[in-house]
């Protein structure tokens, strides 16, 4: 490395801003180091300024954590999902014997098909999250959805202007832009809103809606209907199959999965274990009578062992982990 003659006129603050000088001080960079050391023996009168500059550079130490690799890869997964081109469904195959007979019509058919493609073809967009993956996405009108792990969300971008409708299997938090009715369909119930934010969980027979802002109308398959105001929630009562009367929920404990926190109140262990297995991508095996027990508990994303301990210890249960399988006794 050749050293610039101008360095002779540098002040301490000039040195402190010189990239090769910074590299030398910081990392003891080999090439920069030998060049600077040589320069210093040639210019002993500059030792004071150089020392001053060295200390200034060293004083600038920022304390910061490196992002976790899982964080970086889960953001990339979400980018990947949303930059994928829309999936085209395979066409129904035509049997060989038919093909021959159909040849004369092929030209006409392809013209019709082309026309259909432009006029009526309405591809379905499918957003899928896997275990241990969450993502945020924008719908065509700017409404925002945070999707929890192991969830499938489908909608039709082309007819979005006519009808804002999504189908959900799993759990998601919606922030809906004002406009025409916005509908979330699930296998267990339907949620209708105008412009609001709310959380929907619909998994394995469990259905719950929490309203954060605006008004939310919830109906289930039996035609049972409830209107939620901000701060209220309803769920399907397992015994009667009806929606429960809107009740005030604790905002500190509700839909906190977006911050990696999971609270359960009077929930079955089955529900808790299912959430752990989704968030950590593990399989949990245990006796059926254990799954039915009720608990009020909490776990946080981060360490699987400590999550298991928090849930199991108060219930006098033991979790043994072997690879991706956890056995609870």
């Amino acid at each position: 490395m050749r050293m610039d003659d101008n360095y002779a006129n540098y002040s301490a603050l000039d040195f402190a801003q010189e990239p090769s000088f910074i590299r030398w001080v910081r990392a003891g960079d080999g090439e920069a180091a030998s060049a600077w050391e040589r320069w210093l023996t040639d210019h002993p009168d500059r030792a004071g300024d150089v020392e001053q500059a060295r200390r200034i550079v060293l004083a600038i130490q920022v304390r910061e954590a490196e992002p976790a690799p899982e964080t970086l890869s889960s953001i990339w997964n979400a980018i990947q999902v949303q930059t994928e081109e829309v999936a085209i469904k395979p066409m129904v195959p035509v049997r060989r014997t038919l093909v021959r007979r159909l040849i004369p019509y092929a030209a006409a058919a392809s013209v019709a098909l082309l026309a259909w493609f432009f006029l009526a073809y309405n591809p379905t967009k499918v957003v899928l999250t896997e275990n241990a993956q969450q993502l945020a996405l924008d719908l065509p009108d700017g409404s925002r959805v945070n999707v929890n792990a192991a969830t499938e969300l489908t909608y039709q971008p082309k007819s979005w202007k006519k009808e804002r409708r999504v189908h959900l299997e799993g759990e998601a938090f919606f922030q809906v832009e004002k406009g025409e009715p916005f509908i979330v369909e699930t296998d267990l119930g339907k949620v209708e809103v105008l412009g609001t934010s709310f959380n929907v969980k619909s998994r394995e027979g469990y259905f719950e809606v929490d309203c954060f802002t605006g008004k939310v109308r919830v109906t289930n398959q039996n035609g049972s209907m409830q209107v939620l105001n901000p701060g209220q929630s309803t769920r399907i009562d397992l015994a009667s199959g009806a929606l429960t009367t809107p009740a005030v929920y604790d905002p500190g404990l509700t839909a906190t999965w977006r911050e990696g926190k999971f609270y359960f109140q009077e929930a079955t262990l089955k529900e808790v274990f299912l959430e752990i297995s989704r968030q950590y991508n593990v399989e949990i095996t245990t006796a059926p009578e254990i799954l039915g027990r009720k608990t009020t508990t909490f776990f946080e994303l981060g360490n699987l062992d400590s999550a298991l301990y928090k849930v199991c210890w108060p219930m006098q249960l033991n979790a043994k982990r072997e690879g991706n399988v956890v056995n609870v006794e």
Partner: peptide
């Protein structure tokens, strides 16, 4: 807003 750290070795 950054957290500057002066507990470094040299200093």
């Amino acid at each position: 807003s950054a957290e500057f750290d002066i507990e470094q070795e040299i200093i």
